[in-house]
């Protein structure tokens, strides 16, 4: 899965939680919790949705790596890429 596709899935799921936010205007290195005004429940719903759609297991310990848009895409790409190589 390309980073463009991952980007679109991530933005779509974040938009399901914060429908009024224009994801294009979100700074890719900003803390998503601040930028989107989401709480721990929202973040858990986001992780749940990503897990469901991409099949990526995201342990709690890795949450900090997904706190920015860039970070989330890099993390997911690594996880998905690693799986495909094998």
């Amino acid at each position: 899965m390309s980073s463009v596709e991952i980007h679109s899935v991530v933005c779509e799921e974040l938009n399901n939680i914060a429908p009024e936010v224009d994801m294009q205007s979100v700074n890719p290195s900003a803390d998503l919790r601040e930028a989107l005004d989401i709480d721990s429940m929202d973040f858990l719903n986001f992780i749940t949705a990503i897990h469901r759609r991409l099949g990526v297991d995201i342990p709690e310990l890795d949450y900090p790596k997904l706190i920015t848009l860039d970070g989330a895409i890099t993390y997911l790409q690594k996880k998905l890429g690693g799986g495909n190589k094998g």
Binding site: L44, T48, D57, E60
Partner: peptide
């Protein structure tokens, strides 16, 4: 919570709340 959630998929994790 960290111990409990480590073994769980996201949809059954618990929050401090």
């Amino acid at each position: 919570l960290a111990r409990t959630n480590a073994a769980r998929p996201p949809d059954s994790r618990l929050l401090l709340g």
